[in-house]
Design a protein around this nucleic acid. Structure first.
Lengths: 340, 340
DNA sequence: CTGTTAGCGCCTTCAA
DNA sequence: TTGAAGGCGCTAACAG
């Protein structure tokens, strides 16, 4: 069963293909009468435009590419990405766009995926969902001048359109909260250190210590992968120090669950012996026992704003809006930092 | 800066376009020598094929469509979809495919999205991530004879290529577990009742009751949306009955957290007063307090197998393999059903 | 093994 | 307001 083409519609309606094309793309210069006639035939024939052919002709795909972690990475499962995707899909839907999730083909590095997708004309724009130090993808996108928005921040360039929380400030506040509660031996557990988010959070932590005349103890900074298991292992290290911390800032809820598990196993009490404060405020933090104080980073909003910004760029709505947009965070204080 | 085309490569290499095309598609009937020559030029010119043009010419997009819940639905946030997507992306990557997430454009119903994507030639195949009773999407896909695989089951047709757990059996086992522990007043909290998964799980529950000569109490079956909040509210209803249940089967971890919260608020003890057993075994179940017995449905595997099945269909690897594939589940028993 | 010739289905000048 | 013609970049016969 062959697909109905624009030509078929044209024939049956007794008009030229270009006329039908104009109806499809809602061109104004066309009489209401022929428009209705064509629409009727389109309906009768159950015609749908071939979007591949359209894309080829007008160089527009009505698709944006979202770069997620590759399936091998633990972080793929972080609720953050799902929430961000939800925000993005809300905006793409409103703009009649769809989303392409490019996956790493055999042997492809992240930049290769980008190149293939962009040079292959598969998308009109890109959303990056995270950033690393000296990020190759950002570098490539910037140099190729392809429309994109970063969820996160970029350390090297100042002209990257991006949406992010003020992670440094959030971390500063979170650390200050612990200090206010009388804690001085505050450790920091992070995910991969080349990740910009982690760097920012670490900076805020260090600054808070500094501003409160607490000297930074190198033993108290440890980091590894972004997983629950890694939270567990890192905490184990902390608890084996001669001078164990009285509180921990953890860069992600998932990791903090691992941390909590280890702390309990070693018979320490949260928050009495060790306070715990974390980031991302996924549902995990709320239902942990004790519940975990966490920074709500509003991931859905991050995705939403990133996508809106991308559409602004695509539509050339001048870049009057600031390149770097900040989404508000909120400290959700829970039992893990409440003195009882 | 115009993109380098196949033609440019052909000229510079001194061969015809078709020769270059053959190199791109790794056609066998071409001499190693010219192949190398062309590859060299492709490299020099930094050529990438325009995949839109390819698709138009050969009617193949190297993309599969994954139908997720729309952004308005609470269930969008269920970890299940993220895990399934991870499994899918593993397989698409291996097959050099990408994933299109079609979003509901303004005013589009679910079937409309399907039609647009399929008739628009945007994908080679579709993966449906859930199913409802009298599912319009399934009906449409089946009738249009478009390659697709369902993660889940279909009640109406027997010839739908699908991958699913044996949810009825799983639920039967879970219920039997509670019965074995001496519970007789077992309630069932489900998500939307038109969802096939819920129906299956409910059937298993009922069958287990039946086989154990426990009469099914209609007051003990309640259901609503697939959210934490709905779990909370539904449990509230249960606890207001004259004869409150001594255990609850909950159709999803997220809901069971809501249930747990309500139970605690009303000062009942889990598992002593009320046992709780749930489905999906997301990390939430593990870290709840008390931890929740849950069925591990192996979502990543569901996604993976669904995608592999889809590729089998696309490659005409005869349908020798059974249409309905079952992925094993596992009961993970935790504190919420352990008598202490 | 390689080149030539037509399209794939649509959009976009340009002319009428 | 409409139609004709050419082209988007690539592939698929068909020759040779």
């Amino acid at each position: 069963m062959k697909n109905v083409t624009l030509k078929d519609v044209a024939m049956k309606a007794g008009v030229s293909p270009s006329t039908v094309s104009r109806v499809v793309s809602d061109d104004s210069r066309i009489s209401e009468k022929t428009k209705q006639k064509v629409l009727k035939v389109m309906n009768e024939l159950n015609y749908y435009p071939n979007s591949i052919a359209r894309s080829l002709a007008n160089k527009k795909t009505d698709t944006i590419g979202v770069i997620m972690p590759s399936y091998e990475e633990d972080i793929f499962m972080n609720p953050f990405f799902q929430e961000g995707l939800r925000g993005i899909s809300l905006v793409t839907g409103k703009n009649s766009y769809d989303i392409l999730i490019a996956t790493n083909h055999e042997g492809e590095k992240d930049v290769d995926v980008l190149k293939r997708v962009i040079k292959g004309n598969r998308v009109d724009g890109i959303i990056l969902t995270r950033s690393n130090e000296k990020d190759e993808s950002i570098k490539y996108l910037r140099e190729s001048n392809f429309p994109f928005v970063l969820i996160g921040s970029c350390l090297e360039y100042d002209d990257i359109p991006s949406v992010d929380n003020d992670n440094e400030k959030a971390s500063y506040e979170l650390t200050s909260l612990l200090i206010k509660k009388g804690r001085k031996k505050i450790a920091f557990i992070g995910g991969e250190l080349h990740s910009v988010v982690i760097k920012n959070r670490f900076e805020g932590y260090k600054k808070a210590l500094n501003d409160n005349n607490i000297k930074f103890n190198h033993e108290y900074l440890i980091s590894d992968k972004f997983s629950e298991e890694s939270g567990y292992k890192l905490t184990d290290k902390l608890l084996k120090l001669n001078d164990i911390p009285d509180s921990i800032i953890v860069a992600d809820d998932l990791m903090s669950l691992g941390a909590m598990k280890k702390i309990k196993e070693e018979k320490y009490k949260v928050p009495k012996d060790i306070m715990l404060a974390s980031f991302n405020n996924s549902i995990l933090a709320k239902y942990s026992n004790p519940s975990i104080t966490s920074i709500d980073i509003n991931s859905v909003q991050l995705g939403k704003r990133a996508c809106e910004k991308l559409f602004n760029i695509l539509n050339n709505n001048k870049k009057l809006e600031n390149n770097k947009e900040i989404v508000e965070y909120k400290i959700i204080e829970r039992d893990s930092t409440k003195i009882i």
